[in-house]
Design a protein around this nucleic acid. Structure first.
Lengths: 218, 218
DNA sequence: AAATATTTTTAGTCTTGACTAAAAATTTAT
DNA sequence: ATAAATTTTTAGTCAAGACTAAAAATATTT
């Protein structure tokens, strides 16, 4: 069975939504994620249900089948391996890889992706700290929590980001926040949720929105 | 100006046809090359003429403009660089690269292709001996002739192939013919055009069709 | 120079994946 | 529990890129 670029993007979007919410995914949520209209989503999920990659009950959202999950994980594996390639071999920075990887993830060739995996020496993480599924779709879940959940005086290490947009990543670069960076919470402001942190012995304040998009292991 | 995957394939096909025939390229020739119908070609060349990448006069075929030529060369550059990558870094053999490169050539990112070029150390040839255009679209034309044009007792080196199909390349592998291989013409059969050649001190006979698809420098 | 054959274009249709507008179903609020 | 708001689906369009069948133009024969 073959899947088009659009179909793969739908499966990936639904997979990501599913790992967050657990429940059946609403038409609207998919539309929002893919920046399209709900009516387009209805059209597509009917087609995907026919292909047995998801189950769909009118007015009740969708849920991936095992096959759908497998295909989504295949696309995610490709996306993340290409990101590693771009950063490690082609001098891309972590804020430049997303758009190109979005294209490369749709290249069809099993040999290509497995040889790429070998060439890169089987990386377990992409440049944003997200796990790379293996051939079978298995990946390690790492223990992580949002920076915003740390208490005052707690210390942690940045292990990932929740937002991989170029704007956000550039912001992090400016504040010297990268994967592996040690971060200590100095104080938290209950008024606006902003957090004062200590990085490389420098104190700085970041907004709640930022703190909600940085994953920490502590 | 942005070009779709289909548009790029048309430009590439017309470019290749143009380098052989010199003249205006007929609708039928394009249809044959792209394995599509003449009517589809007419539709597309109208659109490409609107975009000013080719000139088109009804019933008289088409010819690329400088812009069209530039875009075609960009796609060819990408195709050939990816082929080098696949062979040199990912253990592909020369008969396995074509289909994957056909996909990769449409990835849009100037940084990607120029960094890839750097990573590969600016190769001048792809795995089939075809020249790789540089950023400006310039490439070296090498002196080469068909094996079938060599005279008896002449010696030459294989520098390219005219047919990059997997079947043909696998045939060459079986007969130990690869780029750089020294080949001596022992005798030629005027009856069917077949050629007896000497490779690694072994004599073998190849058909005219094969001899017409191997490029030699002598 | 007709007649015939070939090539090319036109006209109309199809599929994919999107869209808008309106109808139907479901939720939320009163 | 009914009204109002929201979500989802249906119905009808549209553009890209392909197709078939037929018409028009060009080439080739005789």
């Amino acid at each position: 069975m073959m899947f088009t670029l659009s179909e793969e993007n739908y499966l990936k979007a639904i997979f990501h939504l599913q790992t967050v919410s657990g429940k059946g995914i609403s038409t609207n949520a998919i539309a929002k994620k893919l920046e399209t209209k709900a009516s387009s989503v209805t059209d597509m999920i009917k087609k995907l249900a026919d292909k047995e990659v998801l189950t769909y009950i009118k007015y009740q959202g969708v849920s991936l089948t095992d096959l759908g999950r497998k295909i989504a994980l295949g696309v995610i594996r490709k996306h993340r391996l290409w990101e590693v390639f771009l950063v490690e071999k082609l001098n891309f920075s972590w804020d430049e890889v997303h758009d190109v990887a979005e294209q490369l993830e749709h290249i069809k060739s099993t040999k290509l992706i497995n040889e790429l995996d070998t060439f890169l020496e089987f990386p377990k993480m992409d440049p944003h700290g997200d796990p790379i599924p293996d051939k079978e779709g298995k990946f390690q879940k790492i223990e992580k929590k949002l920076l915003s959940t740390l208490k005052e005086n707690q210390l942690g290490v940045c292990v990932g980001v929740n937002d991989s947009s170029s704007e956000f990543l550039k912001y992090l670069d400016r504040y010297q926040i990268s994967l592996g960076q040690k971060i200590r919470v100095v104080s938290k402001e209950s008024f606006d949720g902003s957090v004062t942190i200590l990085i490389n012995n420098k104190e700085m304040s970041i907004s709640q929105k930022i703190a909600n998009n940085i994953y920490i292991q502590s």
